[in-house]
Design a protein around this nucleic acid. Structure first.
Lengths: 197, 197
DNA sequence: CCTTGATCTGAACGCGTGTTCAGATAAACC
DNA sequence: GGTTTATCTGAACACGCGTTCAGATCAAGG
């Protein structure tokens, strides 16, 4: 029995990626077999190879897509005005984007060591691009005289680490709403880099 | 040929743990076989079972030891005076301790999902203990009127995430010395939580 | 110097791995 | 309605996995 009703590339393809992302996040790339992914989708392992040339590429594509979505997402909402406004927008965007894609964020950070060197370089490049977006805001803020940041690159990485850390404890049904969390972290970010009056 | 000269429990035991820690950090728990660990030590895989009942316990012991060392390390240097001084001491201690044990920090964070539920609970408990140490400092600082922190628990987690993030980029031979990094981050921490004048 | 016991080897066990591929199936097209 | 073709099955391949254990080895103790 093959090709049951409604079983198409358009349907199975996304389901493979969703299952792989969830399982990779839950158990780790090396601990998840192609047969387990196939089982989640409801096909045999061999069928997966209609959607990815191999397991490594499946992982890489998930990570690349996530990083590209992240960059495109920010570029789509980034304001052009004052640096302090841009910094607040970045803070809120990062929190919103990352808490809604916890699995992809987790995988894109944890499974870097399972990429081939070439794939690793590509993902790292995208991550650097994202850090550079924030670094540019910080430099602009210094130029405007509104921020006091001695090391913009390091500060950018520090802030991103702090914001991404939200994923380890935030739950949508928890005590704090997402917008409360945003405000809480924006307060810390602002004070950490604002020029003291 | 068995038991070559100088091959004792006192020597092989630590070497097994060192090799396991390094390999787990580099490739991930699931991707490292007992045979690879044994190969690094220079014994056959079976010999490892003189030092650990199984692979899972080997991982757990590495993580537990790290977390206990972390807690004991802080308790050994924690000052009793003003909260602001304690916060600076915590910041500098955390940076120094974690950058010197990058492998253990990495493994203790990344491999949580490979622990059995019981072992996971123990490690999580130790992590919470550590967070609570910082939270207590923040609460004290608020009581003293020197810190402005609306959510001490969340702020503690945010600061720890920011500080631990140093491990992703810091290199001992890099442009910035460890004490320069300490000062840089202490500046951010202080501004993020200090009561504005 | 002989015995004891800790330490390690080397082979074995059953099982799961990523990947390939010939053949079966059924939706889509003419 | 017959043909094409995308899709999937099911079996197979060679290999590595964690763990066990009988037997070999050799430092230490009496």
């Amino acid at each position: 029995m093959a090709r049951t009703q409604g079983s198409h590339s358009d349907i199975t393809g996304p389901r493979v990626r969703e299952a792989a992302l969830r399982l990779f996040a839950q158990h780790g790339y090396a601990a998840v077999s192609m047969r387990k992914i196939a089982g989640e989708v409801g096909v045999q392992a061999g069928a997966l190879y209609n959607y990815t040339p191999d397991k490594q590429t499946l992982l890489f594509d998930l990570m690349r897509t996530h990083m590209e979505d992240l960059l495109a997402g920010w570029d789509g909402v980034a304001p052009t005005g004052a640096a302090l406004d841009a910094l607040e927008a970045f803070t809120r965007f990062h929190i919103r984007f990352n808490t809604r894609r916890a699995d992809a964020v987790f995988v894109s950070y944890m499974e870097l060591r399972n990429l081939t060197p070439e794939n690793f370089d590509i993902i790292e490049g995208l991550r650097r691009d994202y850090e550079t977006r924030l670094e540019a805001i910080l430099r602009r803020g210094v130029a405007e005289g509104r921020l006091a940041v001695a090391e913009p690159r390091i500060t950018a990485m520090a802030l991103i680490a702090m914001l991404t850390g939200i994923n380890t404890w935030f739950r949508a049904q928890g005590r704090l709403s997402l917008s409360e969390v945003e405000t809480l972290y924006w307060d810390m970010v602002r004070r950490a880099v604002a020029r003291e009056a």
